[in-house]
């Protein structure tokens, strides 16, 4: 049984206009997304801004109300709930199972609470007794390699990297079954970024952490994720195990994304093709395949018929009419 199964998830925002606030259109921020996360697995959700990856993560956290679809989440070995349809009142006791690591370590810690209290807060809210809380905070500080003295210090005393460690400790406090990490290293400096990536790798090994890793940086994703789902304009265009996806992408958009990342190696200079055009508007996506206006391989069919995400074997999925015939280039 998978830990999380998302099926045909949709989140639409109505565009209203006029005196009567009539709905004149919809922003299809997320438009039919399906994927799963197995126990102990890290799935990366990648894509450019506006592709809907953050919206998906907020739907799973039920920070947003879902338009339609199912989010089946295993709250224990035997029990599964559908987070998409559960009333808000019933969501609250389940929150402890899904925790989040935020992007901005300066905004995510309450400046008026000491680090010890920040980490203990989820425990307190969920009724863990004081003595147990104290031990758990000590354990968590050690886990994220922070000194115990941090407990009685305020966030303003720490650098971005240290704050991010505190944020991670808080997310792990309740032993959540799933951690949603929303761009957890993109606000950090290179040297600190490496420390946090290593910490996340450690935690995956030591705790068997299951993670939804939302990111736009394909280099970071290659280091931390087991599988990758690529999103474009509200839909998943390709899912594959990380290494396979980077070496041999099946979707032209994945190829374009990989080609666009500048490798830290001057000898590879100028060897890449740059995708033309801009990301489509989710309020007004092009007909057929949303990527066809930018796709160098597009044929007439792509302009009319929207491809579905279909399995191609060995855990891979792609939504491209020409996936079978194209020979796309990855990075290696």
């Amino acid at each position: 049984m998978n830990l999380l199964e998302v099926q045909d998830l949709k989140k639409h925002y109505p565009i209203r206009a006029g005196l009567m606030r009539r709905e004149v259109g919809r922003v299809r921020a997320v438009d039919g997304v399906s994927f799963h996360i197995a126990q102990g697995e890290t799935l990366a959700l990648v894509g450019e801004s506006g592709c809907g990856k953050t919206t998906v993560s907020r739907c799973i956290l039920r920070a947003l109300t879902v338009t339609s679809g199912a989010i089946r989440f295993a709250t224990s070995e035997t029990e599964t709930v559908d987070l998409a349809t559960l009333p808000k009142r019933q969501v609250r006791p389940l929150r402890r199972h899904i925790q989040m690591i935020f992007q901005d370590p300066y905004a995510s810690l309450n400046p008026r609470m000491m680090v010890g209290d920040i980490i203990a807060e989820p425990l307190k809210v969920n009724g863990v007794p004081a003595a147990e809380r104290r031990d758990r905070v000590a354990e968590l500080l050690e886990l994220v390699q922070m000194p115990q003295s941090a407990r009685i210090r305020f966030p303003h005393a720490f650098s971005g990297g240290q704050r991010q460690r505190v944020g991670i400790a808080r997310a792990l406090a309740l032993n959540p079954r799933l951690v949603v990490a929303d761009e957890p290293v993109s606000a950090l400096d290179v040297s600190v970024q490496a420390q946090i990536i290593n910490l996340l790798l450690d935690l995956q090994d030591r705790l068997g952490l299951s993670m939804l890793f939302v990111a736009h940086d394909l280099s970071v994703v290659r280091h931390v994720s087991d599988r990758v789902a690529v999103m474009y304009v509200g839909r998943i265009v390709e899912v594959a195990p990380t290494d396979t996806l980077y070496r041999a992408p099946l979707h032209p958009y994945t190829e374009a994304l990989l080609a666009a990342v500048p490798a830290p190696d001057p000898s590879r200079r100028g060897r890449r093709r740059v995708a033309q055009g801009e990301v489509a508007d989710p309020a007004n996506p092009p007909p057929g395949c949303a990527f066809h206006p930018r796709c160098p391989y597009a044929v007439d069919r792509c302009r009319i018929e929207r491809p579905e995400l279909t399995p191609t074997g060995s855990g891979r999925y792609v939504s491209c009419h020409r996936a079978a015939e194209l020979d796309l280039v990855g990075v290696r």
């Binding site: 956290l61 609250r92 006791p93 402890r96 989040m100 995510s108 309450n110 807060e121 809210v125 944020g167």
Partner: peptide, 12 residues
């Protein structure tokens, strides 16, 4: 974010 975090921890 820190208020969202409190909400996600299940705080009332």
């Amino acid at each position: 974010d820190f208020v969202v975090a409190a909400e996600l921890s299940g705080a009332s």
